[in-house]
Amino acid sequence: MSPSAATPSACSAATAIDQRFASLAEQGRCALMPFLMAGDPDLATTAATLLALQQNGANLIELGIPYSDPLADGPVIQAAASRALRAGTTPATVLELLAGLRGALSTPVVLFTYSNPLLNRGMETFCKEAASAGAAGLVVPDLPLEEAEKLSPIAAAEGLDLVLLVAPTTPAGRMARIHAASRGFTYLVSVTGVTGVRSTLHSRVGNLVQQLKASDGTPVAVGFGISGPEQARQVRDWGANGAIVGSALVKVMAEAHAAGEDVAAAAGRFCSTLRLGLDA
């Protein structure tokens, strides 16, 4: 493990994500963090949807880069990734799309990518390109902590926050180490499982949120399995700083697309119901 990874100097400046969580904390609000798969069904729809989410109360947006073998994803997001790949989406076209929205999109965007496309491009190059396209952070669900400790300062040097994940199975000591190394926020996986819509959230998630917040001031966002406004509110009430909604939104978008409806508008409507839930 690299001792230099703990607090690289580039991290001392507040990033876009830090600022967003700080201002929400002042207002006593929980961040709404929708996830969508770039290029599903096409990049023009993704661009329109990013703006619709921004207009309907999203505070941060997680943007998935499609990958052929997404191990941490359930059927909904797997299918979205397959559709996006069939449409010819690549990391480069996703970054072009993002760069094209500069000015119009002020909501911080966190890129969600698996290890292989990132390592294929090279850590330095990937971070440089992501930052210059305007991304604010990275989530890499299959990158080992030891590798994340290498990537984090590289990302930080470009002004990107490398967000790390903790799971319900993570032992307490390791959880504290990950939480301390995570930048921007810590992604608390709410279930022992892959991404997907669940009808209920386990109450131990609440304890985990409290445990994390007690050990370090980094914000905690809960994801995997949040299906609607009630669960988002539940997460807020447990003290989380953010609620990440992925599969449920991807499903709404896929259904709208299948029905020939305006996908971005459908995503915006769903996002506003989540916002109402979180602010209730």
Binding site: L71, L145, A167, T169, T170, R174, V189, G193, V194
Partner: peptide, 12 residues
């Protein structure tokens, strides 16, 4: 080699 897996599996 290494362990490129979701965090959930690391303890197992």
């Amino acid at each position: 080699g290494g362990q490129y897996v979701p965090e959930t599996l690391m303890p197992a």
